[in-house]
Nucleic acid binder design. Structure first.
Ligand code: FES
Ligand code: FES
Lengths: 146, 146
DNA sequence: CAATTTAAGGACTTTTTTATCCTTTATTGT
DNA sequence: ACAATAAAGGATAAAAAAGTCCTTAAATTG
């Protein structure tokens, strides 16, 4: 459903939000450790998310990645679109050149329903809210036990 | 959502069913043309589907791929699982080692709902039924116009 | 049985995705 | 101004997915 890059991006941004709510900026290394993702690859993804203003960053000592009021309204939908594009929302699930109502593929009508639920899932909570759930211990970004 | 291989597989099997309902066996080349997919790659995928008994095949002149009573009960779910595995149904959407109810990732509860709809989409109609819809012109496997 | 046809199988190539590394640029505190 | 720190950027490497090609095996027809 999501590329690895997107999965890392989602977990990273939620972690950044969690730390930002506590007043901390965080470095790429710390993020990668806490979301169980490869550090250099994670850094690349964060770069892109900063460019698209999903999060903020600051260079130099005491710098790092952060999220604040300017990023408050973003949802997973925005983030997923930046990294994986809009194929999940707009493209034909069977790979036809475009998704069309008048010339639908065998999955079209059913996919439309699924998409509604996917978009719902990705928009009903802000990234900040998801971070608050992690903060409350209701959800986790990684499991290091097994 | 689905790999290219899976998309080709889905369209191919529906095409095979459509032709089988008309009493025809079909070769890899014809299939690939009608579903707008690369021929050798499609052949590879069909090989795997035959091995897993989703469809049947026959070598030699008048041979080809077909589907009959023995394959009647299969759905897209079976086909997707053969090609893409069960990650879409069972794995954690954010890549945690496993999907868990007691230690859920931020998307877990929402993903569960989406999965219900995805499984619903993939199981409510048999592959044969999907072929009948194509036969009736209600849906298409390819569009060569644009 | 021989010739032909078509799937099966395996080796290989290309492209995309994932991942790493190194250099540069900006920022901070002293 | 200087040293230290952290992100940005670009170049590369490894792995996986997508796609191709060639040889072999099975079935059919005459
Ligand atoms: S045409 Fe295939 S999903 Fe709409
Ligand atoms: S734990 Fe991530 S989807 Fe269930």
């Amino acid at each position: 459903m999501f590329s690895k890059a997107c999965q890392y991006g989602i977990k990273s941004v939620i972690y950044i939000w969690k730390q930002s709510l506590l007043g901390n900026k965080v470095g790429a290394k710390e993020i990668a450790e806490h979301v169980d993702a490869p550090e250099p690859f994670t850094a690349k993804i964060l770069q892109e998310l900063v460019r698209k203003k999903i999060i903020g960053s600051q260079k130099g000592p005491t710098g790092g990645f952060y999220a604040d009021g300017a990023h408050e309204s973003f949802t997973l939908r925005d983030l997923v679109e930046v990294i994986d594009g809009d194929g999940l929302f707009k493209g034909c699930s069977l790979g036809l050149k475009e998704c069309s109502e008048t010339n639908p593929c065998p999955l079209h009508h059913e996919i439309k329903k699924v998409r509604t639920h996917v978009v719902d899932m990705l928009t009903k909570k802000s990234l900040k809210q998801l971070a608050q759930e992690v903060e409350r211990g209701e959800t986790v970004l990684a499991r290091f036990d097994f």
